[in-house]
Amino acid sequence: MNPQPAPTPTAEPEAPPASPAASNTVEPAASLAKPFKLSRRFDRTARLLGDNAMERLANAHVVVFGLGGVGSFTAEGLVRSGVGRLTLVDHDDVCVTNTNRQLHATVKSVGKSKAELMAQRCQEINPQAKVEALREFYREELAETLLPAGRYDFVVDAIDNVKAKLHLLHRCVTLGLPVVSSMGAAGRLDPTAIRVEDLSETHMDPFAKDIRKLLKRKYGVETERHTGITAVYSIETRRQPVPLNYDDATDGFLCVCPQDNEFHTCDHRTQIDGSVAFVTSAFGMNAAGVVVRRLASAR
């Protein structure tokens, strides 16, 4: 018996052509968004934190005010940890005296913008990051522009000007912005004496004591109880600066800054403290650690 040929399948009816209105329909934004893909450059960090935490870091926007011995290392710690968007704020140019402790300071970078140099460095570490350099000095008149409500996920205060620091911290408290603030890193030699606490819990740091007192007196911040300001500080006794031989030729300290900063200059300070890279960098990396741990845990 000969096998019968299989029946020819019936062709499916063609779908009617889409109407002009349907063809112009835009897909929902959620369906067009690219899924997060971890870069191998962050492999070792991700093996500590996991994919979900790395995605939160990649989507986070952190602002760093002050890019000196502390802030430059904070910015580096953030970008190397996978923070996807950084705004870096500093008004100053690199001075030759920055060479001993600031990441962007080299023989070739003297006289160049700290913010721009640090932004370039961060971009070279992670080309996918969005890094903005703002050559500005934080002050009350620019507060709403530089630190608006709702723009940043975390604020880093590495400012050494007391007036600016006080206003910045008060604004963070008022707006409910998470902030980590560097206290006195100068005059210290022991990086193991660094501590991280709420500002109200800082001990043995005269600078932190002054900040607490002035925040309460000037802005009414209750600094005897939890403030929400995470402070990086040292319990080491601050060392007085040592006079140097070349001071004799100038009747004391001589400022050699490459620009005239009307807001904060060496000449306006009562004294110039000594500082070293292995302490200021530890301050900066502790600040970066505060930010990364908080953002990664979504707290």
Rank of each mutant, 00 (worst) to 15 (best):
M1R: 03
N2H: 11
P3Q: 04
A11T: 09
E12R: 14
E12C: 07
E14M: 13
P17A: 15
P17Q: 14
V26W: 10
S31G: 11
L32A: 15
A33P: 07
K37S: 13
R40E: 07
R41M: 12
R44K: 14
A58C: 05
V64T: 13
V70E: 01
A75M: 04
S81W: 01
V83N: 05
R85K: 15
R85M: 14
T87E: 02
L88Q: 03
T97C: 12
T97G: 09
N98E: 10
T99D: 10
N100V: 12
L103H: 03
K108M: 09
V110W: 00
K114L: 01
F137L: 07
F137Q: 02
E140L: 14
A143E: 11
L146V: 12
L146P: 01
R151Q: 14
R151E: 13
R151G: 08
F154H: 11
F154Q: 00
F154M: 09
F154K: 02
K163R: 12
H167C: 02
H170S: 02
R171Y: 09
G176S: 01
L177N: 00
P178D: 05
V179L: 13
V180A: 15
S182N: 06
S182T: 07
M183I: 11
G184I: 12
G187Q: 03
T192Y: 04
R195A: 11
V196F: 00
S200V: 02
D205P: 06
F207W: 03
F207T: 04
F207P: 00
L215H: 00
K216T: 04
R217E: 10
Y219Q: 08
G220Y: 01
H226A: 15
T227Y: 07
T237R: 11
R238T: 13
R239F: 07
N245Q: 10
Y246H: 11
T250K: 01
P258C: 08
D260Q: 14
N261Q: 02
N261D: 15
C266Q: 05
C266T: 08
D267F: 10
G274E: 06
A277P: 00
F278V: 14
F278K: 13
V279D: 08
V279I: 12
S281G: 12
S281M: 07
F283W: 12
G284Y: 08
A287M: 15
A288I: 06
A288Y: 04
G289F: 05
A296K: 02
A296G: 15
